[in-house]
Amino acid sequence: MVEFLAAQQFLVGAVLVWAGVFKVTSSSVPLVARRSALRRLVGAERVTGAFRALGAVELVLAALLLMPPSHPVEPILAAGAFAGMLAYLVYVRRVAPDSSCGCLGESTVPVRWRAFARAGLLLAASALAAFADSIMTPVVAAVLLVELSVVAALSPELDRYWLVPLRRARVRVSHPLAGTPDTVPLASTVDQLRASDVFKANERALRSDLLDTWDEGEWRILAYTATGGTAVFAVPLHRFAPEEIRLAVVPSEPISV
């Protein structure tokens, strides 16, 4: 239990270092800041500066937590910071639900449950850190490693380093969407039709989207409602030969409703 408590200060300090270094040094901060909900809070003009300042505060807090001498007020300060973070996340969800958090790195993922879980975890860790000194032992290191893994799993900013590659590797081994039937998609036939001169010459008379389509041997038939009738195109099904496309116009039948 003592080891568990002792690990919390390192955890909180490490996360603050990560957040602070990113905000102070990263060249992508102006873009991340503009995409974040902080922009709504402080304005577009000041958001980059506010981001940098926030990073500096996080680094100072991290230094207090990680460097001796340790004082019980340090984790309490950190807990206050994470309580503020939770309040900010609530604000984001209310006023800019599609904005990203901008908390720990570059991510366009909006604030969702993972951001709340991460901030809650760090708030709890900060509170627990007040009850123990930060002493590094192998057990403490192991606890810290597990907790850092949890924080990483809760961080969309890191998905591209582990989750996406993991899923990509799985897809590489066996692509779940391979083995689709050997058919000519309708979109391909419509593209070929659009590429043709006969379509260009008559497109302006077409009033509807595709009315009906069916295959007839080597041809795919596409019917559209045109001014004064039905325009029927026959498009080669298995070849790209827009110059061979045929058109017939069948005068309107009485409209039935």
Partner: peptide, 24 residues
């Protein structure tokens, strides 16, 4: 009926016209 009109497989199609009849 429409297939016959566009592919011309039958001579019984009445009223079917071709290319250019609905020009802009």
């Amino acid at each position: 009926f429409l297939t016959a009109a566009v592919l011309g497989t039958t001579a019984t199609v009445a009223g079917a016209t071709v290319l250019g009849s609905i020009g802009p």
